[in-house]
């Protein structure tokens, strides 16, 4: 009877919500970040987003037609993958990159395994990691300086993280610019406020569990504060660390992916903390300036193990009774 102990893999929802309704919530929540990216990086941003989304939707439809499965493009999951991948690209990349990245994300990371719910890594992040390994120069150099509505400077611009790491010179932008999104970075990661609006909407709608983003950002804050400054403890620039890079975008929109994150509350907290720890490891001592996407991918890999370790304890667990006894 071991089968009883196996918790069915997500997605599964307690509410009567349908998959498309839920996915539509996520699309809505991404809109502020989409608008912000267009505001700061102009038509180029819009072109990348549209390319990425259409490539994702077309790939899904074509693959499902080819293998004679039900075409699921109406559940918006491919749209989300497309938007998220675009949000993770530098604004200066050539348009064929989001197209290839989305196709990879949909076909190889998701559809080959049977479609939505069967993938074990977040498709958008797999697409990003693939592009990163395939064309690293584009993915790490095609930054643009932000400017309102297309006033984008074509010259390459250093991201705050690269400055923090000492990889490139330049001054850090002010806190307000960081919050608003007026800084170099990937399309959708720069505007913290826009991401927070979407994130809070998702938490309010109970689409995502706040444990993952809070655990993730909190861990990064603490660890960068402690270890952030080489040769000294407790002096790191933690505020800048949490505001820069893709941390907020990743914490709210990608680490929380139902399919690839643990199903239990405790497991989700673990997921957040693990993501945070790996992010800091890569940011401070790794070969890349940013570690958010790799950290989420790596935690995706251990999600089944987390579910296995955390879940069985809940078997026969009657509410809070045992907890009280233990205390």
């Amino acid at each position: 009877m071991t089968e009883r102990l196996v918790v069915s893999p997500s997605p599964h929802w307690k509410t009567g919500k349908t998959v498309p309704a839920l996915m539509l919530d996520v699309v809505m929540a991404l809109m502020p970040a989409v608008v912000a990216s267009v505001v700061f990086f102009g038509w180029k941003a819009l072109a990348i987003i549209l390319t990425s989304v259409s490539s994702a939707v077309i790939s899904e439809a074509v693959y499902e037609k080819a293998v004679k499965r039900e075409v699921t493009i109406k559940d918006y999951s491919a749209v989300i993958t497309g938007i998220l991948l675009a949000m993770n690209m530098p604004p200066g990349v050539p348009l064929w990159m989001p197209a290839i990245g989305s196709a990879f994300a949909i076909v190889i990371a998701k559809q080959l395994f049977g479609g939505l719910g069967c993938n074990f890594v977040n498709p958008a992040l797999a697409g990003r990691a693939f592009l990163m390994a395939a064309w690293p120069l584009h993915m790490t150099r095609d930054w643009l300086a932000p400017g309102f509505f297309g006033g984008v400077d074509a010259a390459a611009s250093a991201t705050p993280l690269a400055v923090l790491k000492g990889a490139s010179g330049g001054a850090l932008p002010g806190i307000w610019d960081m919050l608003l999104g007026n800084r170099a970075g990937c399309l959708g990661e720069t505007s913290i406020i826009a991401i927070l609006i979407g994130g809070i909407y998702l938490i309010w709608k109970e689409v995502i569990d706040p444990r993952i983003p809070l655990g993730f950002i909190g861990t990064v804050f603490v660890l960068t504060w402690v270890f952030g400054k080489p040769g000294a403890f407790f002096q790191g620039n933690a505020v800048y660390h949490i505001l820069s890079g893709g941390l907020f975008l990743g914490a709210f929109f990608m680490a929380t992916d139902y399919v690839t994150s643990p199903v239990t509350a405790k497991g989700r907290l673990l997921m957040g903390i693990g993501c945070g720890a790996i992010t800091v490891l890569i940011r401070l001592w790794g070969g890349y300036p940013e570690g958010v996407s790799y950290s989420i991918l790596l935690m995706n890999l251990v999600t089944p193990l987390i579910d296995r370790v955390v879940v069985p304890r809940y078997y026969g667990w009657k509410g809070e009774a045992r907890k009280e006894k233990a205390l």
């Binding site: 990371a109 797999a126 070969g287 991918l297």
Partner: peptide, 24 residues
């Protein structure tokens, strides 16, 4: 086939550890 593709995806994730602590 799927085992190899998954190994590839896992190894993409492990690329994140490249050059870890190289400076140290």
């Amino acid at each position: 086939p799927l085992a190899l593709v998954s190994t590839g995806l896992m190894s993409l994730a492990f690329l994140g550890f490249q050059n870890l602590f190289k400076a140290v």
